[in-house]
Amino acid sequence: MKRIIWDRKPLRVLLFIGVFVIGSYLSSYAANEVAKLTTAPEVPPAITRAGGANVTVELESTEKKGKLSDGVEYTYWTFGDTVPGPFIRVKVGDNVTFTLKNSAASKNIHSIDFHAVTGPGGGAKATQTSPGGKTAFFWKALNPGIYIYHCATTHIPTHIANGMYGLILVEPEKGLSKVDREYYIVQGDFYTKGKTGEKGLQAFDIEKMRAEQPTYVKFNPMATPGNLKANVGETVRLYVGNGGPNLTSAFHVIGEIFDTVYQQGAVGSEPAKNVQTTLIPPGGAAIIEFKVDVPGAYILVDHAISRAIDKGAVGILEVTGAEAPNVFKPLKSGGADAGHK
């Protein structure tokens, strides 16, 4: 009987390929990804994978001059050069490695406290970062919801008042319901030495901040400009946060009723239905959903209305599409009995 003699070289090659394939499979079991960050009012796309991925997030703190109002400039302290900072989207169960870089051009130490984090200071102690420095920490996303993040370096109110806040969404296991449009808005109160409307570069006024008397109240003051947009018949979801540091927002969209509100950003709780105005405290956020039925310009306001009319807390949702006279139509003006003929 002829003995079969195996050539060992092909065997080794096969073994190597096998180990490589199995190793690759095992390493991809927990996906590794870099979180996609967006500038307000844009929101990153919904996460279609399961939770438990290894996600890396990196933000840079900066100090940058920008527009506060027409003819009024302000030196913002930012995450990612924008106010609010970038929107971060992860899923419950994700293992997040967060890195904070502080620009070498910064004049201040900065840090971050994620309200989504379970751990000391929400990461604040681990991320006190000097100009030009870099810090990092790991955290596991245990609770779904929409959460504020903000700087937590002394003097904390000053850092927040200068614009250091943003939102992070921890999606629930099965994600959120599908909607047509998602937008990201954060309100903040600002305190300038000059009066409201006084032109030029304005300095921060700590006494006005302590007295809780802002000169400006703004939505997304240093973000992508322009109106929010939607088409008639679409469902819009707003992630609305409040950086503060002081004022509680009475958030309202003029001409709309919120079909669903996750008050306090409490995903998993029974949402409120048919809400006209929802309270959003400093350091809090809400998820608001509504279907747009009628075309027009819908004005987003803090309904503590002088903040909107006099101090700037205004945004616009522009809805286009066919008129819906069965829902709303202007009637001819005229005498007291117009519309009754």
Binding site: I109, Q128, T129, S130, G133, T135, T154
Partner: peptide, 10 residues
């Protein structure tokens, strides 16, 4: 409350 620790920064 004012002076932060610099043990990790310097």
């Amino acid at each position: 409350a004012g002076m932060p620790p610099f043990a990790d920064m310097l």
